[in-house]
């Protein structure tokens, strides 16, 4: 739940990101970096190495790294879903955005105006800001689902009919897209959506850290969100 930091607690701190979320966040971030780099090379391999096939396993290793990171991502994601249920309120934010709540949308509008530099003062939230919630919900949660589903469908092609990946994913995903090459193309496009998300995400994290009067990056390390007054802020929220 996003909530306004009470004015009187201005200088105090809120415990937002429990340790499992923080650990997950950084493992997940690492997995995604590996997936993006190896995925890119799967699409456009590095220059050929010479000699006998038995001397090398370069491309096999790239693919292996992709799959290891993929499983880290998948298992982490499943864990994160569990933690959304087990953890604190903030742990649920990116999974269950309060779409039905009017103020949620007004806050999104406010955030957009803040980023467009129309709004003079930032609003502060103990958890994510609403714009972050909605973009993480769509561009992270659903994209992760998409990448996992298409990725497992592609993986199942290798493990073959009879494997669980094939039975639960390839069997319906590939006919759904029409054919395997199309699944590759969409999975590949997903890479670039993630890259765009990560760019914005990191930029926003750094910027907010500097400009929004609340700790951001360090919160993802310590779990605590701290607040300070920034220029342009009124005394009342």
């Amino acid at each position: 739940m996003a909530m306004h930091a009470p004015q009187q607690e201005m200088q105090s701190a809120v415990y937002v990101y429990e340790a499992p979320v923080r650990i997950w966040h950084w493992i997940n971030a690492l997995a995604i970096v590996v997936l993006c780099v190896t995925g890119y090379f799967i699409g456009s391999p590095p220059p050929s190495v010479g000699g006998e096939a038995s001397d090398h396993y370069l491309f096999g290793t790239i693919r292996f790294a992709h799959f290891v990171a993929a499983y880290a991502l998948i298992i982490g994601f499943l864990f994160r879903i569990y933690w959304a249920w087990a953890g604190n309120d903030h742990a649920r934010e990116i999974f269950l955005p309060p779409l039905a709540r009017g103020s949620f949308w007004r806050e999104i509008l406010h955030e957009i105006r803040w980023y467009a530099m129309i709004e003079k003062a930032p609003k502060r939230y103990a958890g994510h800001n609403p714009l972050a919630i909605i973009s993480m919900h769509i561009l992270f949660v659903w994209l992760a689902v998409f990448m996992i589903v298409t990725g497992l469908a592609l993986y199942g092609e290798g493990t073959g009919p009879g494997s669980w990946q094939h039975r639960f994913f390839s069997d319906w995903v590939i006919p759904l897209f029409g054919q395997s090459q199309t699944v590759h193309t969409w999975h590949h496009l997903g890479l670039w959506v993630i890259v765009c998300f990560v760019i914005v995400h990191i930029y926003a994290a750094v910027r907010e850290d500097i400009m929004s009067g609340q700790s951001i990056i360090s919160s993802m390390f310590s779990g605590w969100r701290t607040f300070r007054v920034v220029k342009g802020e009124r005394a009342e929220p």
Binding site: P45, A53, F59, I62, E157, P175, S180
Partner: peptide, 29 residues
């Protein structure tokens, strides 16, 4: 299979049994 092809001939990709596959894994293109 799900797309109406005889499984006996269409359940594997060219790549799965390609004799050049060791070069693929080695990164030799």
């Amino acid at each position: 299979d799900a797309q109406g092809r005889p499984k006996m001939f269409y359940s594997q990709r060219i790549h799965d049994k390609c004799y050049r596959r060791p070069h693929f894994d080695a990164g030799q293109f």
